[in-house]
Computed example of a mutant assay.
Amino acid sequence: MSRDEFVKHFGGIYEHSAWVAEQAYDHASSGLNDIDSLTQSLRDVVDAASHEQQLALLRAHPDLAGKAALQGELTDASTSEQAGAGLDQCTPEELECFKHFNESYLSRFDFPFIMAVKGANRHLILAAFEKRLTNSRDVEFKTALEEVHKIAGFRLAAWFEEEHS
């Protein structure tokens, strides 16, 4: 596949960060034809990125059950992921909890709370918010990057399943 086709297909795997797919394609020493090599190549780009690039990647993620979700402004992937965790079914009280936690988290860490929500529900997510708010910034930065990698892994697996079914 050409570079443009590759970026078109995989540029959204890391939320609003096509640069990850661009660099993976440019630096691939072997084929990116299977899910494992593609996942590792994309992960390597993120892990080798500067702190500023990683921070920009984290900041590209939307709040969970936040304003963008309520206004229908999420990417298709984020909309599906949040709906799969039931975030589109929050009560007004739960939405207020999410709003409070999103604001507290952003204020404390300077990037949004990120969690791979596949297999989770809003109760587990709120509990994770509460727990992770006690982390140091360094620990939480690393945790958020790992969650971004999990999200990318889920998105790649879904893409490969769709393409090969």
Results as ranks from 00 to 15, higher is better:
Ala85Ser: 04
Val45Asn: 03
Phe10Lys: 02
Ala56Trp: 03
Ser2Phe: 05
Leu95Phe: 09
Val148Glu: 07
Ile35Glu: 14
Phe101Glu: 10
Phe141Cys: 10
His149Gln: 10
His16Cys: 06
Asp138Ala: 13
Gly84Met: 02
Phe141Arg: 12
Lys142Cys: 06
Ala157Phe: 03
Ala68His: 15
Ser50Tyr: 01
Ser17Lys: 11
Ala24Leu: 11
Ala152Ile: 02
Arg137Leu: 06
His51Asp: 12
Asp47Trp: 01
Leu126Ala: 01
Phe129Gly: 02
Leu133Arg: 03
Val139Met: 11
Leu126Gly: 02
His100Tyr: 12
Glu163Tyr: 01
Asn33Arg: 08
His16Asp: 06
Leu126Pro: 01
Leu32Trp: 12
Leu95Asp: 06
Lys8Ile: 12
Cys97Ser: 13
Arg155Met: 01
Ala120Arg: 15
Glu162Pro: 00
Glu146Met: 14
Ala157Asn: 10
Asp138Gln: 14
Ser2Lys: 12
Ser136Phe: 01
Ile114Gln: 05
Cys90Tyr: 00
Ser136Cys: 00
His61Tyr: 10
Gly119Ala: 11
Ala158Thr: 02
Asn33Asp: 15
Gly66Asn: 09
Lys118Asp: 06
Phe98Glu: 02
Leu95Trp: 06
Leu124Gln: 15
His100Trp: 11
His100Cys: 09
Arg132Ser: 01
Arg3Ala: 13
Phe10Asp: 02
Lys67Gln: 15
Ser29Phe: 04
Asp26Tyr: 07
Gln89Asn: 07
Leu38Lys: 12
Arg108Asn: 11
Thr75Phe: 10
Asp44Pro: 00
Lys99Val: 01
Gly84Arg: 05
His149Phe: 05
Val7Phe: 13
Lys118Gln: 13
Glu147Gly: 09
Trp159Ile: 13
Arg43His: 04
Phe109Tyr: 14
His61Lys: 11
Glu22Arg: 15
Gly72Pro: 08
Phe111Ile: 01
Glu15Phe: 08
Val117Gly: 04
Gln54His: 03
His27Cys: 11
Asp88Phe: 12
Ala56Lys: 15
Asp47Thr: 07
Glu94Asp: 04
Gly84Ala: 04
Glu147Asp: 08
Ala152Val: 00
Gln54Asn: 08
Asp47Phe: 00
Arg132Lys: 03
Gln53Met: 10
Asp47Glu: 11
Pro92Glu: 06
Leu42Ile: 10
